[in-house]
């Protein structure tokens, strides 16, 4: 059953312009895909609720402009994020090379403990592939990140990667969450309750055994 509380946090999509950030977001939140590229000028966000590990998590996902000239400005959004997707396009060697730059920006501007995940998007474009899957894996390993190849076009690995980053953020904030979980035991398991004599009614019948 639904718990009494919610958790809200922010995830951020970064990477070169055209790698498919906006498409990933649309696919995840609206389950839609628009093949035309209207480059994002600014930062935009959408909300999505998912359930992870019995916890209702509401995520605000921020999509950023990838163009070079906006990068000094987009950086100022990093510090608000608890999780970041670094996205490249498997059909663009260049976008893969740029991940290094994106990652160093994250190191510089994102809060400590921010969770990162590497995404190689457009996995459906096998014939145009320029970046091997193992290259992605290697880079991810180097940075200690999880790695997914995805396709916003065919809806491949989209839910998985968003859920994974959400899990990572939840784990990173486990302590705060425990506190919440404790405070909302809205359902008591009666069977347990009655099994434990010390916890039953404090009145005269506390000593009774309840099983007949």
């Amino acid at each position: 059953m639904a718990k009494q509380y919610d958790v809200l946090f922010r995830l951020l999509l970064i990477g070169d312009s055209g790698v498919g950030k906006t498409c990933l977001l649309c696919r995840f939140t609206d389950n839609e895909f628009h093949p035309s590229h209207i480059s994002t000028i600014g930062v935009d966000f959408k909300m999505k609720t998912i359930e992870v590990d019995g916890i209702k998590v509401r995520i605000q996902i921020w999509d950023t402009a990838g163009q070079e000239r906006y990068q000094t400005i987009t950086k100022q959004y990093y510090r608000r994020a608890q999780g970041i997707f670094l996205v490249y396009d498997i059909t663009s060697e260049r976008s893969y090379q740029h991940i290094m730059k994106w990652a160093s920006d994250v190191d510089e501007y994102a809060p400590d403990g921010v969770q990162k995940i590497l995404i190689g998007n457009k996995a459906d474009e096998e014939q145009k592939r320029q970046v091997g899957k193992n290259q992605g894996m290697k880079l991810a390993e180097e940075y200690g990140m999880d790695f997914f190849e995805t396709s916003a076009c065919t809806n491949y690995n989209i839910k998985e990667s968003f859920t994974r980053l959400t899990e990572l953020v939840l784990m990173a904030h486990k302590r705060e969450l425990e506190g919440l979980r404790m405070s909302s035991a809205d359902e008591l398991n009666l069977a347990e309750l009655e099994d434990d004599g010390s916890k039953s009614d404090g009145m005269a019948n506390s000593s009774k055994s309840c099983w007949c």
Partner: peptide, 24 residues
């Protein structure tokens, strides 16, 4: 006490009473 653990811009836990009631 609960809030202080969340350090300003970190995970902002909020209770969404209205939303929960809507769902219910």
């Amino acid at each position: 006490d609960v809030l202080s653990a969340n350090k300003a811009e970190m995970v902002p836990f909020t209770k969404f009473g209205l939303r929960d009631n809507l769902i219910k």
